[in-house]
């Protein structure tokens, strides 16, 4: 019996807080043990235990009060004071006044706070500011400005892929990531998948799709 599959690819998984935690810890290990000495192939059970112990030794207790950190945002080093529980979203908005990324659902459900972390889309509401230290953060403001827009931003305007605009910064970051990944070959299904994690209440979806494809084709 033939079953029709949904007409799009499933969305690639977005990075979760756990992924970041792992990465941060592994970095710590590399730094502690010397990157050259560590090979993934050698990491058997014993090595895993040793690694965890090393990570435990490495862990700095931060907080509960304010912690000074340096964020690399849109190519600039920015020093901020945050509580360990402060999210990247909150730090960007309240400490750096970068209010493009929007708080909407509070918990990884809507995509309005989408930014890039080391070039990958993440929900900034679900990444701690301290986890982002030392990594490259790109926000919608870093992508382009009203007088010098990124092709995806220009395509959003040309196709009217925005109404109230509250979801737009997140949509733009998700679409720009897809365009960066796939370039001119971006398909409709890939574009659908890229913004599957972004909610819009005004119903701009058809125009968002058009904008992503337009930007990919460089029109």
């Amino acid at each position: 019996m033939t079953r029709q599959e949904p007409p799009f690819e499933p969305a690639p998984p977005r990075a979760t807080p756990a992924d970041h935690a792992t990465r941060v810890s592994r970095r710590g290990l590399f730094k502690g043990a010397g990157a050259a000495a560590v090979s993934a192939a050698l990491l058997g059970a014993r090595e895993t235990l040793a690694r965890e112990a090393a990570v435990a030794d490495e862990v700095r207790t931060q907080g509960p009060g304010l912690v000074p950190i340096t964020l690399r945002v849109n190519g600039e080093e920015r020093k901020v004071q945050v509580e360990p529980r402060t999210t990247l979203l909150s730090a960007l908005r309240l400490r750096l006044d970068l209010t493009g990324a929007k708080p909407v659902c509070e918990r990884s459900q809507c995509g309005a706070c989408t930014v890039w972390l080391d070039g990958q889309t993440v929900y900034a509401c679900s990444v701690l500011a301290v986890e982002a230290e030392g990594r490259e953060v790109t926000t919608v403001e870093g992508l382009g400005t009203p007088s010098d827009m990124h092709p995806v931003q220009a395509a959003f305007c040309a196709e009217d892929a925005l109404q109230c605009g509250f979801c737009t910064p997140g949509m733009v970051m998700a679409c720009a990531f897809a365009v960066k990944q796939h370039g001119k070959d971006l398909t409709e299904d890939q574009a659908r998948a890229a913004v599957a994690g972004n909610l819009c209440r005004c119903g701009t979806h058809p125009h968002v799709l058009r904008a992503a494809l337009r930007a990919a084709k460089g029109e």
Binding site: L98, T99, G100, A101, K102, P103, T139, V140, E141, L143, G144, T145, P146, S147, M149, Q153, A154, F156, C157, D160, L162, G165, F166, T168, P169, V172
Partner: peptide, 13 residues
């Protein structure tokens, strides 16, 4: 559109 697409638009939030 440009203000909204670049995050320059300021909402109450």
């Amino acid at each position: 559109g440009p203000a909204k697409a670049t995050g320059a638009a300021k909402y109450t939030y």
